[in-house]
Design a protein around this nucleic acid. Structure first.
Length: 1179
RNA sequence: CGGCGUGCAGCUCGAUGGUCCGAGCAGCGUCCUUAUAAGACGAAGGUCGAGGGUUCAAUUCCCUCCACGCCGACCA
């Protein structure tokens, strides 16, 4: 028994109810419990940063993360989904600073680290709740109550364990890193922050002479826009392969060395006349010593030299060195190297250092600037001056010393602090902790090679590339809210050790300082225990040094990069190895993860790096390769963890594209609107549509909540899944989301609605007939119902749609198993289209038959078929659109609620009823649909509307393969095209021209260059004759060049073309020709159908129920029309549920309407007849 | 500057090297309709980013270039 559901459906409202239903019945928990003991499908949630509100892009991530676990669960796997939150990091600190109205580290320290990190922890919680709301609303099933949280003690201790392991293997070391440094604030800025602060400014552009030691009349010419770095000059770099010119300056009689190709331009710029005396390769300059333009360190280290690895002596500083990065794009082809103030410069220094004997002297970092951005006492002339302020004075000094060739100005982009936009940033060396990831580069590449990336190009493209260029991971941050680096340092000796847990620290001899936490906790019992492993509490904990008697071990002050936190998630989410050993063993590696492409260098990398370093590899070869490439032999690794086979930590990864915003703005860009309607209302036609990055500042996107409220989560999900492959960028367009609803969701819903409307009217019993437990109401259960007839005995259309269902199911499974959600959606869409626009459309009459379903086998079959398709469909779409799928299931199983599973999400995914797949039937139906389509097209051409019956059509087919079948099944076509008779032929029709084309694919390799000629010949020959020949003897012979060429049917393609002058339409395989002769009888029949149509319209206007009876009144004066109505009286009253037709005005005043049929005006009125006992089904 | 990706109808996309560049949406016209916010049919809309090459045949493969996007580097 079914209750009709309306076509007027509010998906958002329905979704809210379903959310409540899921919650009340703990469906998600049940879906997991059901799979206890089943093979697992491991999913990792990449922890969203709980800082800031979720935006539409996050909806996509959450949707796709939901899709595959749901699918796999239905497919029989146990897929636990543990939520997680990334809670540490600078953005959180900034957010809190904003709240407190402070900026710098000094201010934070003034405020107090203790209350500061407490605020950080609270801030994170506030956003988490917003995220949880979004997560639930979009239908993302994940266990939020057991979420891992990166600031939790157990998590922090897992991270500590891993860092200790790396430290003990010598993989964690302290070194310099050149960072973008905000000197006034005393902090480094992340790349993202630096990117925000670029601004075009004018800086000095100086060309400086470096005199050669051997020949003081000859100078290298270098260029710089940062004169303040010159006091720290260490080297001059040239490209070994570039040509350099030694130029004689006519005026000063000195020699200058610049890149040969730049000499003329430079001379002109300096307004000098240079004569090139000689050119030489950069490599010939390498090793030349020069006098730096400013004597900061020169007099001190002029003589300093060291021993190279090969035993030779080499001057430490102020040499020409070769470097590949030198270009001719700007400057002079010679580069001033100040390793303290440039990353590349620093790398060059490191390279130089590695040339020297490790035990002896080597060049050191020369840095004349303090962390405050001011010159140190190394530069007495400018001591205490902010470097950017010293540029002018330095230029003057250079000029006085005769070292300045040219002073100019240059406009370029330079980064400023995004929080204090008057403060330029400088590159500055900071001490930092590093992980020696470069030792694992090859291992990471080997591991990466086995990950299933979607799209595939990520593996060798963006991600592989990034791994190739791996540099050691700069791990530490000089901040407050983060996982503290678990390294304690001896105050006396500076020796260090790492600890792997809080307990381990407590077990150290002479431990002290834990009272700091105890006091804080006593003062504020609300403080979460987790904070005790954070700054500042952990900093107070000290213990006796094992390295020097009587000394204390104190923690280093840094916290770590929060990317390390997230990358440690595979084990840290369980607190491994301090706890959760079993859980970790079961859930490593992940089968599936997905994030947007911005995570390439983020979570994808941090996970792979940490996992590769900690859990090694099974592949011995890769290991060897890694060790070979290792720059420094690490101490023996401790093998307390069994190596894990590649790939890990994730096997498959869908890399999502970025989501773009769409908005409209005025031509001057000042006014911005989120919808076109708004823009049009405000601006008329003078607006432009824009797409681009979503931006908080521009406010160019709307909140996801609006979409949920207006269109629902399913609409959004389906739009994401079905409109493009997940890795291409998606425009978040409200209009596009709205437009995609009728195409699929609504279409499917309308089929459901259609089914329930008639099933209710007809009293179709459905599953209630079946005895006992019905479980998932699959085909086996349905088959136990007495009126369920074997599929093989049902009507062609029934077998067709069930075949399509089976084929689609197979296709969807095949695609989903390949993580091709887009392809799966296309299959589902095509099925729903066929269901709605062909199956239901062609079957409507069967549901309207007079007999009750129980009395008519055909009608009953029609119901059973549609019922079964809808049930299976609800399961098929369940992972994609979980809400509407649930509604469908509930609607379809309402009357057997107690005997089936509570939710569609507790069902198994449909299996393929392969015996129902019928590709031949499918192909035939396709041809049949094409004929129908062509027939309508031909009618259109002939201006014969479909309501006008026609005597006959002739269908010419290119081949007779399906002719017999089509002839047997022409009723569908007759109805569809409203014709009385159909004649099929394949071969000889007076209306058709035959065109024979070569099969290029087959004949290409065979005849090669002669193919165009063959095509020409075939076209010139009589197609009909060739076809006849082909049909009679199986081949045709063509004279091609010298040789006759024998061609078989496979090698030729027959095309049909309607001859002109007929009401015909041609398709690829057939031509449909209409008989346009109309007899008076046919015309009257057409009139009758017009009459039916008019009455039906009126019924609709009067809100008649499908079963209401009516009385019809006509008033007109036309004999032909009268005759038409009389002749077709039975049809008219049957179709319209009329009790009688009266040719007179109604006795009681009812509305009559004026219409026109075939140029005749008539008055028509209808009147509901007092309800008689309903006789059931519609007419 | 480098890496990666994308360029096809107004929009969103698709097309194992094969002769038909296609689908959906939007707009237009006509038709159909007692489930439909639906559907059918049609016309219009494209130098498949540009130029070379390979091939009997290129939107498809290769090269160069251009535009856009992302990521990164650099501005010494």
């Amino acid at each position: 028994m079914f209750k009709a559901v309306s076509t007027q459906v509010s998906f958002p409202k329905q979704e809210e109810q379903i959310l409540a239903f899921w919650k009340e019945n703990a469906i998600y928990a049940q879906s997991l419990r059901q799979r206890a003991g089943a093979p697992t499908f491991v999913f990792y949630e990449g922890p969203p940063t709980a800082n800031g509100l979720p935006h539409p892009g996050h909806c996509l991530t959450r949707a796709i993360k939901d899709l595959f676990p749901r699918y796999k669960t239905m497919r029989g796997y146990l897929c636990e989904r543990k939520a997680g939150w990334d809670t540490h990091g600078l953005p959180v600190e900034v957010e809190v600073c904003k709240q407190l109205g402070i900026h710098s580290k000094e201010e934070i320290e003034e405020y107090g680290i203790e209350p500061f990190i407490q605020k950080c922890q609270q801030s994170v919680w506030r956003y988490m709740q917003e995220w949880e709301r979004l997560t639930e609303r979009i239908g993302f099933w994940i266990d939020l109550s057991e979420a891992y949280v990166t600031y939790h003690q157990s998590y922090v201790e897992s991270v500590w364990w891993s860092l200790k392991k790396l430290f003990d293997q010598g993989l964690l070391y302290r070194g310099h890193k050149i960072v973008w440094w905000w000197a006034q604030g005393g902090t480094a800025l992340s790349a993202g922050e630096v990117g925000q602060g670029y601004r075009e400014v004018a800086d000095p552009s100086v060309y400086v002479k470096f005199r050669l030691v051997d020949d003081p009349n000859t100078s290298l010419v270098v260029w710089t826009t940062t004169p303040w770095t010159l006091p720290s000059n260490t080297f001059a770099a040239v490209h070994p392969d570039i040509d350099y010119a030694i130029c004689l300056d006519a005026e000063s009689d000195e020699r200058l060395i610049v890149a040969a190709s730049l000499a003329d331009a430079l001379a002109e710029k300096a307004k000098r006349t240079w004569t090139v005396e000689r050119t030489l390769k950069g490599s010939e300059l390498v090793g030349q010593c020069y006098v730096p333009p400013m004597d900061t360190y020169f007099s001190k280290f002029e003589q300093a030299s060291g021993q190279l690895r090969d035993g030779k002596a080499e001057r430490l500083y102020w040499r020409v060195v070769g470097a590949d990065f030198v270009t001719l794009d700007s400057g002079t082809g010679l580069v001033h190297i100040a390793p303290a103030f440039g990353e590349i410069d620093y790398e060059l220094l490191q390279e130089e250092q590695s040339r020297f004997d490790p035990s002896g002297d080597k060049p050191q970092l020369l840095c004349a600037v303090g962390p405050d951005g001011k010159f140190t006492s190394d530069v007495p002339d400018h001591q205490g001056v902010w470097v950017k302020d010293a540029d002018k004075a330095i230029a003057r000094q250079l000029k006085e010393a005769g070292s300045l060739l040219l002073l100019d100005q240059v406009l370029h982009d330079y980064p400023f602090c995004w929080r204090a936009d008057q403060d330029p940033l400088i590159q500055y060396p900071r001490e930092s902790w590093f992980i020696r990831t470069t030792d694992f580069r090859d291992a990471m590449l080997t591991n990466n090679a086995q990950i299933g990336w979607l799209p595939e190009n990520i593996r060798d493209g963006r991600f592989g590339n990034f791994l190739q260029n791996n540099v050691d991971w700069a791990l530490s941050r000089e901040r407050y809210w983060g996982t503290p680096l678990p390294i304690w340092e001896c105050e006396k000796t500076g020796k260090r050790e790492a600890v792997g847990s809080y307990e381990e620290v407590l077990s150290k001899p002479g431990v002290a300082g834990t009272d700091r936490w105890d006091q804080a906790k006593a003062a504020n019992p609300e403080l979460p225990e987790d904070l005790k492993v954070h700054k500042p509490y952990i900093d107070s904990v000290t213990y006796d040094s094992p390295f020097a008697a009587g000394e204390r071990m104190r923690r280093v002050s840094e916290v770590i990069d929060c990317w390390y936190d997230s990358g440690a998630m595979p084990f840290a989410q369980w607190g491994y190895p301090h706890q959760g050993t079993d859980e970790f063993a079961k859930a490593f590696p992940a089968d599936f993860i997905s994030e947007a492409i911005d995570q390439t260098r983020g979570w994808f990398y941090s996970q792979l790096a940490i996992s590769t370093m900690l859990f090694g590899q099974a592949d011995a070869e890769a290991k060897e390769a890694t060790q070979k490439s290792a720059k420094l032999a690490a101490p023996k690794p401790t093998h307390d963890i069994a190596p894990v086979a590649y790939p890990h930590p994730f096997k498959n990864c869908i890399v999502l594209g970025l989501m773009l915003a769409e908005w409209y703005e005025s031509k001057d860009g000042k006014q911005r609107y989120l919808t076109e309607e708004e823009a049009r209302t405000a601006l008329g036609t003078s607006y432009i549509s824009k797409t681009g990055k979503m931006s908080k500042q521009l406010r160019n996107y709307r909140s996801p909540q609006e979409i949920f409220d207006n269109h629902g989560a399913d609409a959004l999900r389906w739009y994401f899944f079905a409109n493009q492959p997940p890795w291409s960028s998606i425009i978040y367009s409200e209009r596009a989301i709205r437009d995609s609803i009728p195409e699929f969701l609504l279409r499917m819903w309308n089929v459901l609605s259609f089914f329930t409307i008639y099933a209710e009217i007809d009293g179709f019993a459905g599953a209630t007939e079946a005895p006992g437990q019905l479980d998932q109401l699959g085909r086996d259960e349905l088959a136990t119902a007495p009126s369920y007839s074997p599929v093989a005995e049902r009507a062609e259309l029934d077998r067709w749609i069930l075949g399509e269902l089976a084929t689609t199911t197979a296709e969807v499974i095949e695609r989903m198993d390949r993580y091709d959600s887009f392809g799966a959606c296309q299959q589902i869409s095509a099925l729903v289209d066929g269901l709605s626009n062909w199956y239901v459309r062609r079957c409507r009459d069967r549901y309207w038959g007079k007999a009750k379903a129980a009395e008519s086998r055909d009608k009953s079959d029609a119901y059973w078929t549609l019922y079964e398709v809808l049930l299976e469909l609800s399961k098929l779409v369940a992972p994609f659109v979980p809400f509407v799928a649930e509604s469908m299931w509930q609607t379809l199983t309402e009357s057997v609620r107690e005997r089936v599973r509570t939710s569609v999400h507790l069902c198994d995914y449909p299996t393929v009823a392969s015996q129902r797949c019928d590709s031949l039937l499918s192909e035939r139906m396709r041809v049949l649909r094409e004929i129908a389509s062509l027939g309508r097209s031909a009618r259109m051409d002939a201006k014969l509307k479909v309501r006008q019956p026609l005597a006959s059509v002739e269908v010419s087919l290119a081949s007779d393969t399906h002719m017999a079948w089509l002839t047997e099944h022409d009723q569908i076509i007759r109805e569809e095209l409203n014709v009385k008779q159909i004649a099929y032929n394949a071969g000889n029709s007076p209306y058709i021209e035959y065109q024979i084309l070569p099969n290029f694919k087959l004949l290409g390799p065979r005849v090669g260059k002669q193919l165009p000629e063959l095509k020409k010949q075939l076209a010139a020959l009589d197609g009909a004759r060739l076809l006849a020949e082909l049909q009679s003897q199986g081949f045709v012979e063509i004279e091609l060049g010298e040789q006759p060429l024998r061609l078989t049917g496979d090698e030729l393609e027959v095309r049909l073309k309607a001859k002109s002058g007929w009401a015909a339409a041609q398709g690829r395989e057939c031509v449909v020709v209409l008989s346009t002769d109309l007899t008076p009888e046919l015309i009257r029949e057409g009139m009758a159908r017009d009459v039916v149509r008019l009455i039906q319209d009126l019924r609709k206007q009067r809100d008649c129920q499908f079963t209401d009876r009516i009385r019809v009144y006509f008033e007109f004066d036309n004999a032909e029309l009268t005759l038409a109505i009389e002749e077709n009286h039975a049809t008219i009253i049957g179709e319209t549920l009329a009790t009688e037709i009266l040719f007179s005005p109604p006795a009681s005043p009812i509305d009559t309407h004026s219409f026109e049929i075939s140029g005749q005006t008539l008055q028509l009125g209808i009147e509901k007849v007092a309800a008689v006992a309903s006789s059931g089904g519609p007419a």
